[in-house]
Amino acid sequence: MKTPMIFTAIALAGLVGLIPLAAYSAHDDVPDPAQIARGAKAWAQQCGRCHNIRSPSELTDEEWLVSTTHMRVRGNIPGNVIRDIQAFLRSSNKKE
């Protein structure tokens, strides 16, 4: 019973002690240039930790949003860094 209690305490700290359920839905915002620049750098750094860097044109904006959220969890990448990467990808796939 000891380990579940420890885990429960830690999980509660994560749920209550920190900012809970920050449901960002800023996907429709037009990314600003500074965010795009940060995202381009993070894109190269974070993806290359495990595999080759793929072209932004390989997927649509929607697919990238899901894919990068998946990578946020798998790669333990902070949420703000993922939003920068998403801004970069949306900007890269922007229709002129």
Binding site: A11, P20, V73
Partner: peptide, 12 residues
């Protein structure tokens, strides 16, 4: 299920 608690924590 991955519940995105905030920028630095996800509950799986």
């Amino acid at each position: 299920f991955d519940i995105l608690l905030h920028d630095y924590a996800t509950l799986v």
